[in-house]
Design a binder for these strands. Sequence first.
DNA 1: ATTTAGTCGCGAATTTTTTCACAAGGTGGT
DNA 2: ACCACCTTGTGAAAAAATTCGCGACTAAAT
Lengths: 209, 209
Amino acid sequence: MKVYKIPEATVMRLSIYSRYLHQLMGEGVETISSGEIAHGVGVSSAQVRKDLAYFGEFGTRGVGYKVEELYGHLMKILGLDRNWNIIIIGAGKLGSALALYQGFADRGFNISAILDVDPDRIGNKLGDVKVEKIELLDKRVKESNVSIGVVTVPARVAQDVTDKLVNAGVKAILNFSPRVLRVPNDIILRNVDLSVNLEVLSFNLAFNK
Amino acid sequence: MKVYKIPEATVMRLSIYSRYLHQLMGEGVETISSGEIAHGVGVSSAQVRKDLAYFGEFGTRGVGYKVEELYGHLMKILGLDRNWNIIIIGAGKLGSALALYQGFADRGFNISAILDVDPDRIGNKLGDVKVEKIELLDKRVKESNVSIGVVTVPARVAQDVTDKLVNAGVKAILNFSPRVLRVPNDIILRNVDLSVNLEVLSFNLAFNK
DNA sequence: ATTTAGTCGCGAATTTTTTCACAAGGTGGT
DNA sequence: ACCACCTTGTGAAAAAATTCGCGACTAAAT
């Protein structure tokens, strides 16, 4: 099987499968079929098998998958068999929420720093991390070997912050600002636009009836 | 042109185009080509034209699109030519951040209520809205004619909250909890999983080198 | 009036993703 | 040992989404 290009949709589903498997482990389930995973997360069983087939053969014909084993494979595939250091730029409501979001820590994402320009925010404690001034961006990225920058600043400064992150050496950026960011080709960029999601709902509500 | 099924990716891009056009309006731009929109938001010009073609002919050959006019069409298509009432269930960090997120109000989403079970949170003011007890769910949805429910509760109670929202009469649900929700066929459901986004980055960092 | 340069709309071709369908392999009962 | 029954892995088919290519149309310059 080709390993060249994995569909992004596949990667997102793997992440969802892994979480479902984790839940099953908690329930003491030891073996599961593609059909059951499919039903559990709302896709087709062929989809589950195809997604897994990109990376190897993890099941046993006639039987299914060992939950714990498959979970381990998925975590490895997703790069979650290690910790990642991330930095959050922007300690507004969204940045704070992300900093305190347990889901990140649970999956091995360690928040190395959270920075802002606003003196009122600097010094605030968010969980274990204290908000620091933006000038420390380069220093913090380098000293903590930060791989991922999370951008939660207003649109007008998003590109500027992004450039600084790239220069400091982050390899990937998760952008929550409603701005199209330019990054060099070797930097991985993902955009999460909260409004877009609501607007897709709005479209469906308005359009389909 | 077929109106049957609009790709979800198209809808998401329309939302992005509309925001870019709004920015251009602010800059005083009056006319724009598909190629310029494409460059501005990072897709191909054919993609822009194809996306728009699902809904009609908005441009002038040889000239391009009138920014304001196209913006108006897009807002109408997206159902943003009116206001939507939404309710947020879960006043934790994420729910609070969403409640205070200016981006929603800017696009016509009006937060009718935000509810929680935690007595410590009830009574807190988030912008113009006060956190109220979860028991008011049915009442608030009905009296404010709420169309969209936003679920930001812990995974274990997400399905329960969802069922209550559906029973109360919401037509769409935006789910931020890491749980696959079951809803009737006529209810529109979208999932936003913040961890998935980080994990796709993690995968790309780990896998591509 | 004609030419030149530019741009849209859209059918067709291409690429990508999903679904189908079944051979291969495994389990448990008799 | 054989049979009945499962479930995976995967090539092939189908479906969906994107890109290509060009005819149709516009504006502006000469």
